[in-house]
Simulated scan of single mutants.
Amino acid sequence: MAQDFSPETESPALLPSSQPGSRPPGITPALSPLPCVTVGKLFLQWAFLSHLSNAPVIPASPSSLGQELSLHLPPSVTGRSWSLAFCTARDGFSLRSLYRQMEGHSGPVLLALKDQDGQRTTKFFPLQTARSSAPQMFGAFSSSEFRLSRGFYGTGETFLFSFSPQLKVFKWTGSNSFFVKGDVDSLMMGSGSGQFGLWLDGDLYHGGSHPCATFNNEVLARREQFCIKDLEAWVLS
């Protein structure tokens, strides 16, 4: 069972500040819901879900990337179907909206992000500008839904990952239990010495990634601080 941990040494005060409700120029939320096939483009282009379930939610073709990542998921989700609970293309850039979309879900979450610096030409994104050694995408598997919490919660099944372009998975080291923590203005995964493995601000526009003791991870994005281009959260159907 997931538990909340409240370490006094780990504080979101180190996170860069942002104006509540602000949104970068040119970015507006969709006015109406779009089909999963349209907005679920991160995992669709990974062709990922075809390797997570026997009956995928969206049509997908086999992908070596999807096969590799599916091998790291816990046995409890093997053969299960996934559905798109939240995406910035449909639901806008808001952490509060992400929390609202998580209501009613009590299971694991797959989080996929693409930053504005990590654009490169591949068979998945042929129209993007190439940038050498920049991760294509990155994200996390959380054993529990994202929610507001007083302290860290989750289990050792939680992990971080990146494609750069090869898959790298950073699993729990056992050093601490700082898996996930949800605040009104930030979402954090992994911590140690005041740094977070992955954090997102309240506007889901700015984020950061640092090596942390929880996962002994590398920086997931091209830079320690990044701007989010796309974000999706998938839950078990």
Rank of each mutant, 00 (worst) to 15 (best):
S106V: 11
P108W: 03
P75A: 11
G104F: 02
R80T: 11
L42G: 07
S76A: 13
G107T: 07
G104E: 06
S50K: 12
H105N: 15
F86W: 04
S61G: 09
S61Y: 12
P59I: 01
M102G: 10
L98M: 15
L52H: 02
I58S: 08
M102E: 07
L110V: 15
L110F: 02
L42N: 03
L65W: 10
G79D: 05
H72L: 05
L44T: 14
Q45W: 04
G79I: 07
L111Q: 04
G66T: 09
W82H: 06
D91S: 02
A60P: 05
P59F: 01
S97T: 15
H51A: 11
H105L: 07
G107W: 02
T38Q: 11
P62G: 05
Q67L: 14
L52R: 04
S94L: 07
L44W: 07
V39F: 00
F43G: 00
H72S: 09
S50N: 13
I58A: 09
D91V: 09
Q101D: 03
H105Y: 14
W46L: 15
S70Q: 10
H105R: 11
G107C: 03
R100I: 13
I58Y: 02
P74S: 04
I58V: 13
R96Q: 15
S83K: 15
H51N: 08
S64T: 15
A47N: 14
S63W: 02
M102R: 04
G66M: 06
V77D: 01
S61T: 12
E103D: 10
L111E: 02
L95P: 01
I58N: 07
L98F: 04
H105F: 14
P108T: 09
Q45H: 10
P74Q: 08
W46N: 07
L84K: 01
L52F: 09
Q101H: 13
K41P: 00
L110Y: 00
P108E: 05
E103W: 06
S50L: 13
A85W: 01
I58K: 01
P62V: 10
L110R: 01
S70I: 09
H72W: 09
A47E: 14
L52I: 09
G40P: 02
V77W: 00
P74Y: 02
S64F: 05
L69Y: 05
A89V: 10
S97L: 13
L95R: 03
S64I: 15
S53I: 08
S76W: 01
V39I: 11
S64G: 09
L113C: 08
Q101S: 11
F43K: 00
S106Q: 13
L44G: 14
C87Q: 03
L73C: 02
L71D: 13
L49D: 11
L65K: 12
W46Q: 12
L111G: 06
G107S: 10
L69S: 04
L65G: 11
F86A: 06
E103A: 14
K41G: 03
A112K: 10
D91I: 08
V37D: 05
F93S: 15
R96S: 15
T78N: 11
L69D: 06
L73K: 08
R100P: 00
L113Y: 01
S61Q: 14
D91L: 03
P59D: 04
G107I: 08
T78C: 12
P75C: 05
R90A: 13
V39Y: 01
S50T: 13
S70F: 01
H105K: 10
S63K: 06
L95G: 02
E103I: 14
N54V: 13
E68I: 09
